[in-house]
Design a protein around this nucleic acid. Structure first.
Length: 586
RNA sequence: GCGCCCGUAGCUCAGCUGGAUAGAGCGCAGCCCUCCGGAGGCUGAGGUCAGAGGUUCGAAUCCUCUCGGGCGCGCCA
């Protein structure tokens, strides 16, 4: 509908240009909006207001000329000039009725579009270090990322979902060493656990598992381990120096092969846990991309070589630097350390080169907002690699603060007592968790009230929307019990009988769904879908209270049932897209 | 100190990329079917869009400054 009006306006502009009223050089950006106030019709355009200046004309007079030049169309009932120069379009109600039959015909596919057809998009999200279970902060990224990906798919894009696994680097060595020390405890050694180690219970569990299945082959005496190790922080030393020495000692005592096994076992364990966790949360990936693989197969060298050829690298203080400050970053960044090791950033450059080489039209990185300082350097890298910088889109997700009613839920990573995503799911369930995470704009700091999410009352928006769906299902159950018939075709023929205010409103809202999906997808804003579904549910509940559906009159009854079942379909489509259940009864 | 995000009703938040009288939910004050699920609906009170300038026909939205909150500024990942 929106498109049709746009075409009509475009034709009118063409006519005015031919008549010399508008300069030929003027190419207006036509915006058509749905009106907020029904008195203003169904759609409105501010074209005349926008063109008034370049055309050097009075906006109202210009609007009149545009209206006069507008071709007739069966779907447009009338066009009005209003206010300072708005052009308001009143749609022929008959065309609104078509959406009901369209929804019935298209079913689950209603709302999908093809604007993204032929375009490949990669969405990378969560990508938490595999050093422990996902916590509630990752949950928002997971929910947001997966819905953005699904929205893009609904808009016709070919979507590739990816998790970047940071399975190389010091953090992983710290993990392996932490597990090993816990393992030694299992063997009966008395260990002073390093202050910088991973203290969570999961580390003990993994250690316990290894010990159970491996007899004592990794056992070394604690005196051997601690010999000449610099003091930890509580003993007046430096915790970083302490843990690095412990890592080296672990590697030496176990030897490359055993260390590798140990490292791998910890990694596999945690990664598997993350995969199961995300899966249960309704999040699927096409690929789990290994950072270590980039290190091992020479991709990092290749990426740096490409930067070197482009003249973006230089040596200083024994390290290799990327001159990112020339490409918008605030300062240059080290890519190869003095000790010869690549930085995390170096492998990230290689990762993004790999993304570019795979031929995606758009690369979307979804990060926690605390990483925002990282954006300019990655952008710089994209440019230095010779790619179009606009291919990269970074979406930042703010943290969620958990509350239980009024009381703030404390999180502490250090003590290992943080709230995990799994705990959250167990407490509020998948549906409420996903709904709440995605309910707010991603850049918005969010208060997540656990008590509200679990309450089975009208305070809880999840239940409100789901209830609308269940209520419609209940109506259809009642149909049988009352011994009334349903006739789909008869209902379609009588749709024009739906002239009540509530019905007209619902028809308009149903017709809006595809537009909402499209906007939400192109702007990466899942919360728009949530707001839409709440609106739709509200309008349905209002309608339900105002009118009986199961009436004696066959024509009206069947028309209303068709309308209501279209509402049910759209609720199911919307909730389905968010990966939230649509219960038939609650 | 510099950079990014945010500031809208008592609370939690929308606000369609600059449009018409700023909207929801919760909370509060009143109400509603002998009838398809009251997990619902209706009505009302509640706002200097943090503040001050500017841009223009028109600003919550764009620009500048100030105030307040969050987060970043490693040869960590």
């Amino acid at each position: 509908m929106k498109q049709k009006i746009e075409e009509l306006i475009l034709q009118a502009v063409g006519v005015l240009k031919a008549e010399g009223i508008l300069g030929l050089e003027i190419t207006p950006h036509i915006t058509i909006e749905r009106t907020r106030d029904p008195q203003h019709g169904d759609f409105a355009s501010n074209l005349a207001l926008v063109l008034a200046k370049p055309a050097k004309a009075n906006p109202r007079q210009l609007a009149e000329k545009i209206i006069a030049a507008l071709p007739q169309h069966e779907a447009v009932l009338k066009v009005e000039l209003a206010g300072p120069g708005f052009i308001n379009f009143f749609i022929n109600p008959d065309s609104q009725y078509q959406t009901v039959s369209q929804i019935h015909a298209e079913g689950r596919k209603f709302g999908l579009s093809t604007i993204g057809a032929g375009k490949k998009v990669q969405v990378e999200f969560v990508s938490a270090n595999p050093t422990g279970p996902l916590h509630v902060g990752h949950g928002r990224g997971a929910a947001y990322g997966s819905v953005v990906a699904d929205l893009l798919e609904a808009a016709g894009f070919e979507v590739h979902r990816e998790y970047y696994v940071n399975d190389a680097g010091r953090q992983m060595d710290i993990l392996a060493t932490s597990i090993w020390l816990r393992y030694l405890e299992e063997c009966g050694e008395l260990v002073h656990f390093p202050s910088n180690g991973y203290r969570g219970d999961y580390v003990r569990e993994i250690a316990w598992n290894i010990h159970k299945n491996s007899s004592d082959q990794y056992h070394r005496r604690i005196e051997q381990v601690l010999e000449n190790i610099p003091a930890d922080e509580p003993q007046g030393g430096d915790k970083e120096v302490h843990i690095d020495a412990l890592i080296d000692r672990t590697k030496t005592l176990l030897g490359p092969s055993l260390y590798r096994d140990f490292f791998q076992f910890g990694l596999d364990n945690i990664l598997e846990d993350i995969k199961v966790d995300l899966n249960e949360f309704g999040v699927e990936y096409q690929q789990w991309f290994s950072e270590r693989q980039l290190m091992d197969n020479g991709s990092v060298e290749k990426a740096l070589e490409r930067l070197r050829i482009g003249g973006h690298l230089y040596e200083q203080d024994g390290a290799t630097w990327f001159a990112s400050s020339q490409l918008g970053d605030e300062k240059d960044r080290v890519v190869v350390r003095e000790n010869g090791q690549f930085t995390y950033f170096a492998s990230d450059i290689a990762y993004h080169m790999d993304k570019l080489d795979r031929g995606f039209d758009q690369i979307i990185d979804i990060w926690g907002a605390d990483h925002h300082g990282y954006v300019p350097r990655v952008r710089a890298a994209i440019q230095a690699l010779g790619a179009d910088e606009s291919k990269l889109k970074v979406l930042l997700v703010q943290f969620a603060v958990l509350y239980r009613g009024e009381e703030r839920v404390q999180m502490s990573t250090r003590s290992g007592e943080f709230v995990t995503l799994r705990q959250l799911r167990n407490e509020v369930g998948k549906d409420a968790a996903r709904f709440f995470y995605v309910m707010r704009r991603s850049e918005q700091h969010m208060d997540f009230d656990l008590k509200l999410a679990t309450s089975k009352s009208n305070e809880n928006p999840v239940f409100y929307v789901q209830y609308a769906h269940a209520r419609i299902c209940s109506v259809f159950r009642q149909l049988d019990e009352k011994g009334l018939e349903r006739n789909l075709l008869l209902g379609m023929r009588n749709l024009t009988g739906l002239t009540e205010e509530h019905e007209v409103l619902l028809l308009g809202t149903l017709a809006r769904y595809p537009e909402v999906l499209e906007r939400a997808a192109l702007q990466y804003e899942p919360h728009q879908v949530i707001h839409y579904l709440r609106d739709l549910a509200t309008e349905f509940h209002t309608y339900y209270n105002a009118h009986q559906f199961l009436v004696e009159d066959d024509g009206i009854r069947n028309a209303r049932l068709n309308l209501v079942s279209a509402v049910k379909q759209v609720l199911a489509n919307g909730l389905g897209l968010l990966n939230i259940n649509t219960p038939e009864a609650m």
